[in-house]
Design a protein around this nucleic acid. Structure first.
Lengths: 201, 201
DNA sequence: GACAGCCTACCTACTAGTAGGTTTAGACGT
DNA sequence: ACGTCTAAACCTACTAGTAGGTAGGCTGTC
């Protein structure tokens, strides 16, 4: 049945996401996945011909969803700091759900990844950076952030700090690293302007 | 012969380091390793009974060396900023050598790692953080850094930013992300001191 | 002769992937 | 309403290849 098939495909993608974001690409297997879904290994191949195709498809769907989420933030928030705070929320949400951010989980093993996935991870990070640059640029233009702020480098810093904090939090099994690291970055963005400090959410 | 054995053992550790820091734990194999060294797979077991033991031993040696390096920095530099800059040098050096920092490479796949390695990765990060806190604390005491600086959170930020920047740089195959991210953190540490304080309430 | 170091040959468990058959269900002509 | 056709979805049973690990033998040095 059509609806049933879509369902299974989606469940496959969902479980793949969990496995990729907890164990990584190399350490997850079709057997693993099949058992979680409750179908046989061979049936996965009906939906995704190869592991590489499944991995690539997962990143693609994830990316579409993520792009929409980022666009939504731009629509709902009009100031740079709240936008960044919402952005940081994705990372704290990841940890709360007991997972790494997808591309943070994959990029360490980039060298062992199929080419199709390498490219997508790369594209994903570039998307993050482009969005952050947009937010920062508008923040500067609106006078919310200092005019001397280096947009490109600050975007890198925000992404790096959040991915890195997630990595450290993941290894230490202590999510409380993320928010302070981010708030430190943000508070210094604010310090460099003339406004004062609206801490806490 | 004893010297010969040590040699092989050391070469095993060195190649293991390369493999772990480029492909990760799950994606590297005894076959891989044996070929690089030029011995048979089975012979590795003579030096390290299991893969887990090899991995743990690698982290242990790495950790000893790293602790010495950190101690050396404390001996050679007496100010916080140069100390941090030397610390950041480890991360840029990693990328220059075409590798991830060891624990950054491993921590993403923590959940798929043998327990002995999980604990060591964790311990490694805690060592980093403890060292950073020491440097920052002394920097505050010496008046090089602002007295209001949160030592614990700043230590987390420095580690996170550098690990994260390495991750991003690794995925983008562009090492130039690391230094700017770090310098941004550092420059804001300096800004928050009273030395170059141009008014602002 | 003890033993380190390395070997060949092998094991079991598991990997992604394939071949080919069965079940289910909707579409269609009569 | 009926059998017939098609095709999606899934199955069992299998492949070749690789994973980490073991048993036992050869060799050279102390």
């Amino acid at each position: 049945m059509f609806a049933m098939s879509l369902d299974t495909r989606e469940r496959l993608l969902r479980e793949t996401e969990v496995l990729l974001r907890t164990k990584g690409y190399a350490a997850f297997s079709y057997a693993d996945l099949a058992e979680r879904i409750g179908i046989r290994k061979a049936s996965i191949h009906h939906h995704f011909r190869t592991k590489e195709e499944l991995g690539a498809a997962l990143i693609d769907t994830y990316l579409v969803k993520f792009e929409a989420d980022l666009a939504q933030i731009l629509g709902q928030e009009r100031e740079a700091i709240p936008r960044l705070r919402r952005y940081a929320g994705f990372f704290t949400a990841s940890m709360r759900e007991g997972m790494m951010p997808l591309c943070g989980a994959l990029s360490a093993e980039t060298a062992a990844l199929p080419l199709a996935m390498q490219q997508r991870v790369r594209h994903f990070f570039e998307l993050h950076l482009a969005w952050l640059r947009t937010v920062l640029k508008e923040g500067v233009k609106a006078g919310e952030l200092g005019p001397d702020l280096d947009v490109g480098e600050t975007a890198s810093l925000v992404l790096s700090a959040l991915e890195g904090a997630s990595l450290v939090a993941w290894a230490l099994k202590d999510a409380s690293v993320i928010t302070p690291a981010f708030e430190q970055v943000v508070s210094r963005l604010i310090d460099s302007t003339s406004t004062n400090n609206p801490i806490r959410e």
